[in-house]
Simulated scan of single mutants.
Amino acid sequence: MTYRFSLDDVAFLTSSAGERALAGCGALPLTGASRIADVAAARRLAGERSAVVLETVLLRRRAVSKLDSAAGWLCTGDALQQASASPVARHRAARLSGRDVHDVTCSIGADLAELAKVARCCVGSDLDPVRLAMARHNCPGVALVRADALRPVTRDAVVVADPARRDDAGRRTWRPRDFVPPLDELARVYAGRDLVVKCSPGIDRAVVPWANEVELVSLDGQVREACLWAGDLATVSRRATVLRSDGTRWTITDEEPDDIEAAAPGEWIVDPDGAVVRAGLVRQYGARHGLWQLDERIAYLTGDRPPPGVRAFRVLEHGPFQEKALRALLRRHEVGRLEILVRGLDVDPDALRRRLKPRGPAEATVVLTRIGRSPHLFLCTAQRIPPA
């Protein structure tokens, strides 16, 4: 059950007594085996506030992989789940450097903290008084106000919004009304202003016609968000941005050449980053790196030299896909550790692996896809290609 923070909780956590309790409980192991002893120790340190202190310590530990300086942050479980990872928030903020910016759904301040570093003037607002109090702690010195995102309290600033997803939406393809506030309402209220809206990667471009640019962003191989840019902020129609925790970054847009063809397999198979695939920029990515497609409707690329900094698959053998033939192929190569990648075919990788029962000392990747109307298999070895 999610702990419900109150304003009194925030006031305690930001007091000297709260800080001492957090420091003391921060040293506890907080494992299943130590639970009883940890709760007893927390009660000695924080008394009746032990529950909120323990919850905050646990949330800070979860936040370490997502937020910079997480050890000092205050957050709720729901707010942390929705918060942008710091590298993603930092990338978005960089495009707003030197501008006046108003984060109209600032929550606990994950985006606001990065915006405040680069904006000429920065304002945050939210309707939730608890999250706003946490943002005041997390983003000291930033102007904050309690306000409805659909009732403007600034005039000329760039508007940044991160609408919450409705709990009952239950879908991967999202509609404007599945968000709070609804996407189309945000667009209507802020028509004529530069607007930036973070939303789910599954958003359909057709349901947000007001978005002049849709940017898909991934971090360490996981697609994190679609960012909708409206007004003068948009510079292209489609963009994919790939971020790494080590600080490396690259981007590709629909303005790049896409003149590649589908042809016979090369020495390597390349599975483009998910942001590239979701942004519909596979052909542009292939053209940039001298690759071509196996099939014009499938996102796998192939070539004789893989791009730098990716995990690519060197082809050992390939041919029509039949389970019997694949089983024999694995036996011949003595493959016991098997990764199965599928695109364009109705195949369950886990169920297939159980049926194949691979045995042996070797490790391999099987890529299953469709070329034309025919299912095809590639037996490969996966390799991490060094950065350029």
Rank of each mutant, 00 (worst) to 15 (best):
residue 3 Y to L: 12
residue 16 S to W: 00
residue 17 A to T: 09
residue 35 R to Y: 06
residue 36 I to M: 11
residue 42 A to H: 06
residue 42 A to R: 07
residue 43 R to I: 02
residue 44 R to W: 05
residue 48 E to M: 03
residue 54 L to R: 09
residue 59 L to P: 10
residue 60 R to A: 03
residue 70 A to C: 06
residue 79 A to Q: 08
residue 86 S to Y: 03
residue 87 P to G: 11
residue 87 P to K: 05
residue 88 V to M: 00
residue 95 R to M: 15
residue 98 G to C: 12
residue 101 V to Y: 04
residue 103 D to W: 00
residue 114 E to W: 02
residue 131 R to W: 04
residue 136 R to T: 11
residue 141 G to H: 03
residue 141 G to Q: 04
residue 143 A to R: 07
residue 145 V to I: 13
residue 154 T to P: 14
residue 175 R to G: 06
residue 182 P to E: 11
residue 191 A to P: 05
residue 191 A to I: 07
residue 193 R to Y: 01
residue 203 I to V: 13
residue 203 I to K: 00
residue 205 R to Q: 08
residue 205 R to D: 15
residue 206 A to Q: 15
residue 207 V to G: 00
residue 211 A to N: 05
residue 211 A to F: 02
residue 217 V to I: 15
residue 221 G to M: 10
residue 226 A to D: 02
residue 231 G to F: 09
residue 240 A to K: 03
residue 242 V to I: 15
residue 244 R to V: 09
residue 244 R to S: 15
residue 247 G to F: 04
residue 255 E to S: 13
residue 269 I to P: 01
residue 272 P to L: 01
residue 278 R to C: 05
residue 280 G to C: 03
residue 281 L to N: 03
residue 286 G to M: 02
residue 290 G to V: 02
residue 294 L to W: 10
residue 294 L to Q: 11
residue 298 I to Q: 11
residue 314 R to L: 13
residue 317 E to W: 06
residue 321 F to Q: 04
residue 335 V to M: 05
residue 337 R to W: 13
residue 353 R to Q: 11
residue 360 G to K: 03
residue 370 R to M: 14
residue 374 S to C: 11
residue 380 C to T: 15
residue 385 I to T: 14
residue 388 A to L: 08
